[in-house]
Amino acid sequence: MAIWIEEDAKVLVQGITGKQGMFHADKMVEYGTQIVGGCTPGKGGQTVDLQGKPYPVWHSMTEAITATDADATVIYVPPPFAAEAIMEAADAFDSIKGEGVIVCITEGIPTLDMVKAVAYVENRPGVRLIGPNCPGIITPGAAGGAKIGIMPGHIHAKGRIGIVSKSGTLTYEAVAQTMSIDEGQSTCVGIGGDPVNGTGFIECLAAFENDPQTEAIIMIGEIGGNAEQEAAAWAAENVTKPIVGFVAGATAPPGKRMGHAGAIISGGKGTAEEKFEAFRQAGIACAMDPSELGKVLLESLKTAGLR
């Protein structure tokens, strides 16, 4: 078990003929992800070579899912067309299978496009959207696994720690920290740093709580909004597994966007201090420095009798 994406999940790539799409599709195949083809409107019938083998390209997601019975899709489509790519995938998964996971890597999608796309996906309850503006989701396997996104696969190993984060490289940092105490990961989810996105912290925590493979959780937030506070309050009531947390942006000045579109303290709200406090109130063990996530996790595992 893992969450949402099994080790052998069948995955499509939207935008597979583009530079980014092809580069990362190749890396995914190299890692062991079961890529079953891709979709680029107007390029159906072509093939794309990944790791020396040809993979089919379809015009539409309906064709692609019908032909492959894919479980998930990953989107590397440029910002002007990305929201539509999400909705096309949602519609196809919903009408063909009634379920599916959409991972959107694209950064810089207009917010109002995402407002529409998220509402569209939410009208199709079997379909899950992860991202946009995220590193993706990875379920490491005993050999290979399912890497759906842009994260470096080789730093991961199969294990029992679930990781959820708004940030890409900070997720890699968290992965390296679990490895430093000889722990692997069940699933790592990057939910993205945009103000309007799909899957949030609470859904990830709920899934990790229900996943028998996951025994502890690392949650990494950042300034802006109050998703971390809500997740902490929810976790206090609903999560029995140990959680270790970190929030980036304690030194960020108010009113300035820190790289991610959603990372902004506005009207004095959404500060790191506020979020750390919510974590502590909920019994989440906090690391004040990401290089100490491993140490704090180890202590939490020991306290829970897991080491």
Binding site: S167, T169, L170, T251, H260
Partner: peptide, 22 residues
């Protein structure tokens, strides 16, 4: 990475320094 860039500033501060930028 934006998250790691923020965390880097935070850790500089944690160890007694002051970040000049993000």
């Amino acid at each position: 990475g934006a998250g790691l860039a923020m965390a880097t500033m935070d850790v500089i501060k944690l160890y007694g320094g002051e970040p000049a930028n993000f």
